[in-house]
């Protein structure tokens, strides 16, 4: 497969001597207009790669913050068409920052995976992270995505042992997403030293960049993890910032976009100094 936006972005960050900051927000959270404004503001705030969550009624791998983000989006009438529209609008202003769609399989399955891959590619999507399709089911969505020139990023976890890793990595492209804890999004990382060991273990099996997520909350953590990892993924802390900016009726305020971009800028500063100490 030829070089993708994701490949280029990770290469550029490596050349700049820092990890890529990968930011997750849920599409449509807290409402379509605000969510679009947040998405559009992410690159300037310091996001290198964007994961755009496709809201789902049953987000089984998410902790409370992202569960609530999904609920806010769906309560506001968000749909997959609107998610794709958000990507199209983003691409009018930014052709360089990669966007991955992240979420669960069913909303894609009902649209037929092959058709969906095409529509997503045309909208300006660069790849997918789908939580509930393991490597054993690569033929369903991963292979069609690769054939369309899109990246399919697979999660590796602490339970993915050396015997299983090659199968998990076989069709992975773009980067490998290492889940730092056994648990749900927003959990607490207990030992960053073990994360570094795990990153290096995965690097023994692949030349792809390795990004680390689940539980990164502060600039200091981003700096520590970014010493070894090629990317640092943050999500719950951004979605929490959205929630805390809402008014008593759960509606967006004029603080909402800035609440997110402030956190992104802080985390970006952590990434920037990751390898200087």
């Amino acid at each position: 497969m030829s070089e993708t936006r994701i490949d280029r972005r990770f290469k550029a960050c490596a050349q700049a001597g820092r990890p890529a900051l990968v930011t997750f927000v849920t599409a449509g959270d807290p409402d379509l207009q605000t969510s679009q404004a947040i998405l559009n503001a992410l690159p300037a705030a310091g996001a290198d790669v964007i994961e755009l969550g496709m809201p789902f009624s049953d987000p089984m791998a998410e902790g409370i913050p992202i569960q609530l983000g999904n609920q806010r989006a769906l309560a506001g009438g968000h749909t997959m068409d609107k998610t794709l529209d958000m990507v199209r609008k983003f691409r009018e202003q930014d052709q360089e920052t990669p966007i991955l769609l992240m979420g669960y399989y069913n909303p894609i399955y009902v649209r037929e995976p092959k058709k969906f891959v095409e529509v997503a590619r045309e909208a300006g999507v660069d790849g997918f992270i789908i939580v509930d399709i393991p490597a054993e089911a690569d033929d369903e969505l991963c292979i069609p995505a690769l054939e369309a020139g899109l990246n399919f990023i697979r999660l590796a976890t602490p339970t993915t042992d050396d015997k299983r890793l090659p199968a998990v990595l076989a069709n992975t492209s773009g980067f490998v997403y290492y889940v730092s804890v056994t648990g749900i999004t927003g959990a607490n990382i207990k030992d960053t030293g073990r994360v570094a060991d795990a990153v290096n273990r995965i690097k023994n099996h692949t030349d792809l960049p390795v990004a680390v997520g689940f539980g990164v909350k502060t600039a200091d953590q981003a700096a520590t993890i970014g010493k070894d990892a090629d990317g640092v993924v943050v999500g719950s802390v951004l979605v929490n910032a959205i929630r805390e900016s809402l008014d008593d009726d759960g509606k967006a305020t004029d603080r909402t976009v800035k609440a997110v971009t402030d956190v992104v800028a802080d985390l970006a500063s952590g990434c920037a100094r990751a390898r200087s100490a």
Partner: peptide, 12 residues
């Protein structure tokens, strides 16, 4: 049928 679970659960 099948096995549509997160990678953390696959080995389990």
């Amino acid at each position: 049928g099948g096995r549509y679970v997160a990678e953390t659960l696959m080995p389990l």
